[in-house]
């Protein structure tokens, strides 16, 4: 089932912080691999995702829950298309930023990332360094927190 592809990416990232998600990432990987080789999934991960969302919707929006449950395959494909579309668009933006210094070369003034660097009073490279340091700090914090908690 295609929804496993998104699950693989999401659970892999979440797995960096919690072991609980690593098992799910392995499950999602197995399902993705089998989907890509045109075989049915061995796990019921897709069903669990489907029912988790359906049950959340059922309480407040029963008609939406019904639509989601009945058309889960269509929704899965839609999510995957949106997911890959966003990934491609992000890659295109990063490429433009690196090569032209703006995310949209045809209309540089609309690039909010460029505006952010101007607002912060730093260059694009400096902003990337700040973001990397922040991400590493968060990762370190989580690892330390986990280590202390385990101790």
């Amino acid at each position: 089932m295609v929804i496993c592809i998104i699950a693989l990416v999401v659970f892999s990232i979440m797995g960096l912080f919690s072991a609980k998600y690593r098992a799910l990432a392995v499950e999602a990987f197995d399902c993705t691999f089998r989907t890509l080789t045109f075989r049915p999934c061995r796990t019921n991960l897709q069903d669990r995702i489907k029912m988790k969302v359906t049950s959340k919707l059922a309480g407040r929006f029963p008609s939406m829950a019904k639509a989601f449950y009945k058309n889960f395959k269509i929704f899965s494909w839609l999510f995957v298309i949106i997911f890959f579309g966003s990934m491609l668009y992000t890659a295109y933006t990063v490429y433009n930023l690196a090569v032209y210094g703006t995310c949209d070369p045809s209309s540089p003034s609309t690039c909010t990332i460029k505006q952010a660097t101007s607002f912060l009073g730093c260059g694009l490279e400096t902003l990337f360094i700040y973001i990397t340091i922040a991400a590493l700090s968060i990762l370190l914090f989580f690892l330390l927190y986990k280590y202390i908690k385990l101790k």
């Binding site: 019921n44 069903d47 669990r48 489907k50 029912m51 988790k52 359906t54 049950s55 059922a58 449950y69």
Partner: peptide
């Protein structure tokens, strides 16, 4: 309806 779906819905709701 899939029986697993019934069981999961009863559990979560």
């Amino acid at each position: 309806l899939n029986p697993h779906d019934i069981a999961m819905m009863l559990d979560s709701t």
